[in-house]
Design a protein around this nucleic acid. Structure first.
Lengths: 243, 243
DNA sequence: TCAAAAGTGTTTCCAATACACCCATGG
DNA sequence: CCATGGGTGTATTGGAAACACTTTTGA
């Protein structure tokens, strides 16, 4: 890092060094889908400030650490899994949003297959819990707003990208797929029409396997065809699913 | 601002003060529409680093200044106009993206009516110029990437929101409106169908005025009906214009 | 034999698309 | 009188939406 003590900069003629006193944090809105509900993973903070309040998993970024790397590290700590699907959504920078100083935070959302993930509380989290998006507790900082922004973004993204696959097991019946979209859009969809539409997208592989241990006719299992999806995406193809 | 010299924080057990050495900047991708082309406003940097290179208008954020406020101030300086349409797009935080230290930057795009805006170079800009998006010069920092991200975002937004109105004069003929969307989507659209679609959205007021001084049949002028737009938006109405 | 969800087929209807044509103005 | 873009009408078609129906499993 260069010396910069007596340089001037910027339209205000303020010593350059005065600008280098921000902290940057990363907060992750981790979405999961479970039992017909869209859920978010929250932690109970184990450190000050706002100790014991529910909050988003997040952390301060170190000076030599990239933002995306930092977000990935948080999820690695929490789930043990690397390279979870992450999308940067928005940066929140209100002057007084953090009691310790000028901390701006960049919010990401993450999508995980809730059935495959084991959560392990870490140093800054004394507890973790999946909350339904409709039943969130009181939250620290401006995390309520962050969540709301991320939910909106997820809804918009879900309409144009086959994002849902990240939230489901590798193999899944179409009924589950539909329930997921019903949870995201908070609505109900016509079964027949939903199936026709999804199949017409040509990004699903039908398997020769069936659901097990269900008290109704077992559904065929499907798999996301990522290769085919990327081919179509190249061509500018749109994937409108649901509403 | 609180004392924090000897507190500890965060999973890494690093002194808290070590985290407060980021700088934050704001960069604006200002879009305008002129003569059938989508254009971006660039400045020639009048200050180090990267002096004399073309770059996005932007500045370091002061510690006591909000991010959005900072973006607004930049545009105010540049155009003399307050409350220009601004949208936060993405935050870029690569560790080595800035030669003076760890500077992360939040990118916004702005939409202006190019015919109503007078640009005045300010302290950090020795020159300003509107460039076609297809003919950009060499750019400072990672500004090429920032622009590319903002163009993508604009394209996506234009499909779902009547963003185009910000780029046009208050009163405009439908032909101009169509040309704008053709510039954004880089395609041509069928005149008759475009008109039908736009009119069916019910967010345009037809005026009793006509274009002047054109060497062809003058077109009727239209105005954006913001009130009606907001009503429909409340109801979750979608505004797909063009492709 | 009942509940519950899988899975399919049909009809209706609207909106996207393609395309042809006429109109008004300046030069 | 022609080039230019404004402005309108119509036929076709594909897909969205609504809804009825059959199938397969566990309990």
């Amino acid at each position: 890092m260069k010396k910069r003590e007596d340089e001037k900069f910027n339209a205000y003629d303020i010593p350059l060094d005065d600008f280098f006193h921000f902290a940057l944090s990363v907060d992750c809105v981790v979405f999961g889908f479970d039992n017909k509900d869209l859920k978010i993973l929250l932690i109970e903070r184990g450190v000050e400030p706002m100790k014991d309040l529910w909050a988003l998993p997040g952390d301060l970024v170190r000076l030599e650490e990239g933002i995306e790397v930092s977000a990935n590290n948080i999820l690695k700590k929490l789930t043990g899994v690397n390279n979870i699907y992450l999308k940067q959504v928005h940066t929140f920078g209100k002057v007084d949003r953090h009691p310790l100083g000028r901390v701006i935070t960049t919010a990401f959302y993450a999508l995980v297959d809730i059935s495959k993930i084991e959560i392990s509380p870490s140093s800054w989290a004394s507890q973790t819990k999946w909350y339904k998006v409709s039943e969130l507790p009181q939250l620290a900082f401006d995390h309520r707003q962050i969540i709301s922004t991320c939910i909106n973004q997820l809804e918009r993204d879900a309409k144009l990208q086959p994002i849902g696959f990240e939230l489901l097991p590798k193999k899944f019946p179409l009924g589950l797929f539909q329930e997921l979209y019903e949870a995201i859009y908070q609505t109900t969809l016509d079964k027949s029409n939903f199936r026709k539409k999804v199949k017409s997208l040509n990004i699903l592989n039908q398997l020769d396997e069936f659901e097990k241990n269900v008290s109704h006719r077992p559904g065929k299992l499907y798999q996301f065809d990522k290769k085919r999806y990327n081919e179509l995406k190249e061509k500018g193809f749109l994937f409108e699913i649901g509403v």
